[in-house]
């Protein structure tokens, strides 16, 4: 079975669940109607979505560079985390808000979509792993004698999280291309 078949079957399965009725009930709301009838609303939500990815992804990236000792070397891990990590979490909040607005605007296209649900699972994994990784790294750096040098496990974790971010972005773009 090819990947396209798998995605097709996933879509068919989603269509049979309560999600279809739920999506249709969202499309009956006045907010959904307002988004549909205002041409620029979706492009503006998507712009906010991309700018939020820029904030969150780059903040995660800069924190990772510090772990590798490539950037932010004059500051400790704790100082770097205070500088960058709030941008990752606030970015995530704005991603959720703009994302929910996009769902309200196009509920069937989003909720009956295999890429959307793959993305949601990946985001949950990303959030849980990020919290775990960040707290552990900050704690171990604070306890270590200075200068702190990241273990290869920490470096591997930083790279894995960046790859997971890219995968989430990939799924997000493919939502637009799945046949509904």
């Amino acid at each position: 079975m090819s990947l396209s078949d798998l995605l097709y079957n996933f879509t068919e399965w989603l269509r049979g669940t309560w999600l279809t009725e739920f999506a249709l009930s969202i499309s009956d709301t006045s907010l959904s109607f307002w988004i549909v009838t205002n041409f620029w609303s979706i492009p503006i939500f998507q712009t906010i979505h991309i700018l939020s990815i820029a904030a969150a992804f780059s903040a995660t990236f800069m924190f990772s560079l510090r772990i590798f000792g490539i950037a932010g070397g004059s500051r400790t891990i704790a100082q770097n985390s205070r500088r960058y990590l709030p941008w990752a979490w606030w970015g995530l909040l704005f991603l959720a808000i703009s994302g929910i607005l996009m769902i309200i605007g196009e509920p069937v296209r989003e909720l009956i979509n295999p890429w959307f649900w793959i993305k949601m699972v990946a985001i949950v994994v990303l959030i849980v792993l990020s919290i775990w990784f960040q707290t552990r790294t900050i704690r171990s750096a604070a306890a270590a004698p200075s200068p702190w040098v990241a273990s290869s496990a920490v470096k591997g974790g930083a790279i894995a999280l960046l790859i997971l971010w890219c995968f989430v972005i990939y799924c997000g773009r493919f939502i637009a291309y799945a046949p509904v």
């Binding site: 991309i50 820029a54 992804f57 990236f61």
Partner: peptide
Amino acid sequence: HVIFLVTVVGT
């Protein structure tokens, strides 16, 4: 393109 451009805009 998105991954590269968010790196540009963010940095």
